[in-house]
Every structure is written in structure tokens, then in C-alpha cells.
Amino acid sequence: MMEPLLDVKELTMDFGGLRALDKVSLQVLPGEIVALIGPNGAGKTTFFNCITGIYKPTGGNVFVTPPGKKQRRISGMKTHRVTAQGMARTFQNIRLFPEMTVLENVMIGRHCRSRAGVLGAIFRDRATRREEKDIVDKSYAILEKMGLAGEVNELAKNLPYGAQRRLEIARAMATTPFLLLLDEPAAGMNPRETDVLEELIRRICTEENIAVLMIEHDMRIVMSISSRIYVLDYGKMIASGTAPEILANPVVIKAYLGEEDVDVPAS
């Protein structure tokens, strides 16, 4: 049995009286593309925020096992340290650095993989120059893969919407993660853009050997791309399994369609 890259055990998150996550467990194995779905307000984004250290979970544990390394507990770790462990994310409502160029946005991703300090910046010694060149080259290579090489010097805020979504993924890739967390990467995209994105995510998984955990509402992409699917509803993990299993699961259908067969409003 393969060691899971990400192992979340009974994660709980309370906001005052509201239990946004209730003993949620989830695993991502190497080479997998896992989808996390659920109705609006189910707690999916909260789940991401908890495992990346943006929120401090009130209960449960999160472990990661970077390939070739020992298992580590990351719950309670600061966000930037989690990223340094090898888990990078994107945001549901795009959070690029709008006044920085496309290339610089990606270069920020290299921050945790480089070390030049203040003195290096001022004196630009050979090691710093080499590191800087390495940052630029690696960032550019990622942008090429994401089809953004034509816009390197454009300010991020000037990119069209779909390109901004891809840039967010590029920026996350620059941190050389072993697991990529995507929060609704296809949101607001038209079917053609979604197809391009799907192809891209597949390539990231197979060619770069990066596992993907993604939150997504677009069932078409979810069903065709994911090896496994988790379903969250009102903070509880109500189902998990392969696409056909999920589609046939009555609990999931009920969560999505509500109690429709019980009372249909007369309108």
C-alpha cells in the first residue's frame, strides 16, 4: 500500500457556534487527481484554509509525506512553512499580485526555494546572480508550459480572466509542490477553456508527477478527470469513491437536490 501524500484525520473547524468542518478525513495518494465536491457553503474552501494553515483547525490532524521523505504533521504549521513542505494552492476568488508582472508573480513562487538575503540583493555577488537567473529561467519555463510565455511582462491585472486562473496555477507550480490544491479552477470558464484546463491538469499530474486535489462545481470536468471524489455537505464528509460510485450514491443525490421529492414549491 502506498503512503498517502496527504492524510487528513478527523479535521474539525468551529467558527464560534458554527461547525464548518466536522471530523473530515481525506487522503490523496501519489499520482492521483482527487476532487472535493459539495453544495455551496459545504466547507470546501474552509477545508483548504485549514490544511494550508490559513485557519487554525480546532481539532484533528493533517499529515503529509513528501515523496522519499518521512511523514510530517503539518496541522498548526504556519502557511508559508506548509508551502515549503510541498503543498501549494490556488484561490477560489483569484488572488494574484495585480501590480506585478506575470513573470514576477511566478517568481514569487520560487521564494521559498531560494535564499538570497539583503546583502546578496545589494552586492549581487555571483551566487545571488546565479540564483536570480535560475529563478527567472524556471519561472519562464513554467509560464511556457501554461501557455503564458507571450505575456511575461504584462501586469497580472491586465490578463484576461482565464489566463489569470492559469497564472495562479503557474505561480503555485513554481513552489515545486508534490501536491497541488486547486480551488474551483474552472469557475467562470467557458466549455472550451475548461477543456484546455482539464488537459493542463492532466499534464501536470502525469508529466510533472504532481498530485492534484481540486474543489470544483463543474461536474463534467470532475467526472472525467478525477481518480476519486469526496463529497462534503454541511461540514461532513458524506461520501467518497470513484465517479460512477458517486453518481449512483443516493446520499449524494439527496445532498445536491435537497428534499425536492418531499416538498416541491408550487411556483
Binding site: K78, T79, H80, F91, R95, I108
Partner: peptide, 9 residues
């Protein structure tokens, strides 16, 4: 937030 999520302390 994004800055920290990209690994900057």
C-alpha cells in the same frame, strides 16, 4: 494571504 500561501514568510 496569497503572499504567505506562496511560501513567503
Amino acid at each position: 494571504v496569497a503572499c504567505e500561501a506562496m511560501g513567503v514568510d
